[in-house]
């Protein structure tokens, strides 16, 4: 996929996210919209996965540490054909495969069940370590929210990632600056994240605009430094793409009404590139 196609896919994914959450009447639009470029670029330009063989043992792996952004994950997997997009309308419904947080046992293409924050990097470290132990040439990707960096386990996991020299691991931080109760700084300041992750021993690539598809694609494609895990620190906009949701903490975990959805979809357009 070229960059224009990726951007088109990002629009489609954003439309899916909002439609899904609106039909469920609950869900997390803000953090789903902020990480669209990170996830689309990861799946479409980096990962070796096959929707027809979602469990292929040699496939690359992805862990959504910020599990509440499941709508974004489902939209990407659905658009790639891992399951029927008709499932979107069942999001969060009884017996649906699409729970509020990703479930490895239910959704083809999902590699880890998540939702309890701060745990994804450890699982990704285990996968990357397991790949090396089993002699598999497999790459592992994970996306974290910034709020969950307040969980101590993230420090444990990044320490281990550097210690084990996991150059088959890419940790992406969706730094949209907001969490449920306010801004990161209001709730619990995170300090200098670039320095923090560099101190752990990760190769930090900072993106001033993590919603710039070209920049994300470029960062993901940068060659790996042997023996170093890659960390993409992406400054993103929560609620990206919908003017009334952007940078609004209230849209962390609230569903748009049918009327709001209509306005949002109109703003997003149909994804056609002129």
């Amino acid at each position: 996929m070229n960059c224009l196609e990726l951007e088109k896919m990002a629009v489609t994914v954003r439309r899916d996210i909002l439609t899904m959450i609106c039909s469920a009447g609950s869900g997390h639009p803000g953090g789903s919209l902020s990480m669209v470029e990170l996830l689309v670029a990861t799946y479409c330009t980096q990962m070796h996965v096959d929707p027809k063989h979602p469990d292929a043992p040699e496939r690359d792996r992805f862990v959504l540490s910020k599990g509440h952004a499941a709508p974004c994950y489902y939209a990407v997997l659905g658009e790639l054909g891992f399951f029927d997009k008709a499932e979107f309308k069942n999001f969060r419904q009884l017996h649906s495969i699409l729970q509020g947080h990703p479930d490895v046992k239910k959704v083809p293409g999902i590699d880890a069940s998540t939702g309890s924050l701060g745990q994804g990097v450890s699982i990704a470290v285990g996968m990357a370590l397991g790949a090396k132990a089993a002699g598999k040439n497999m790459k592992v990707y994970t996306i974290l929210g910034d709020g969950e960096l307040q969980e101590g386990q993230v420090c444990e996991a990044c320490t281990a990632a550097a210690h084990y020299k996991l150059d088959n691991l890419t940790v992406m931080i969706d730094n949209n600056g907001l969490q449920i109760d306010g801004t990161n700084d209001e709730v619990m300041s995170l300090g200098n994240l670039h320095t923090r992750f560099e101190t752990f021993g990760l190769n930090v690539i900072e993106l001033p605009d993590g919603n710039d598809m070209q920049a994300v694609v470029y960062a993901l494609a940068l060659p790996t430094i042997p023996g170093k895990p890659k960390c993409i620190l992406a400054h993103t906009t929560k609620g990206k793409g919908v003017s009334f949701m952007e940078n609004q903490v209230s849209w962390h975990g609230r569903a748009p009404s049918a009327e709001e959805l209509k306005v949002a979809l109109k703003e997003l357009g149909d994804g056609k590139i002129e």
Binding site: P57, R61, V63, D111, A112, Q119, V121, S122, I123, A124, V125, G126, M127, A128, L129, G130, A131, A133, A134, K136, M138, G152, Q153, E156, A157, T159, A160, H163, Y164
Partner: peptide, 23 residues
């Protein structure tokens, strides 16, 4: 053999990931 240091929560997460690789 993997000594993950004094970090039990991380250890169980890593174990989960390794099991997913068939170990």
């Amino acid at each position: 053999f993997y000594n993950v240091g004094i970090a039990e929560q991380n250890m169980f997460g890593i174990a989960s990931g390794m099991a997913k690789c068939g170990l």
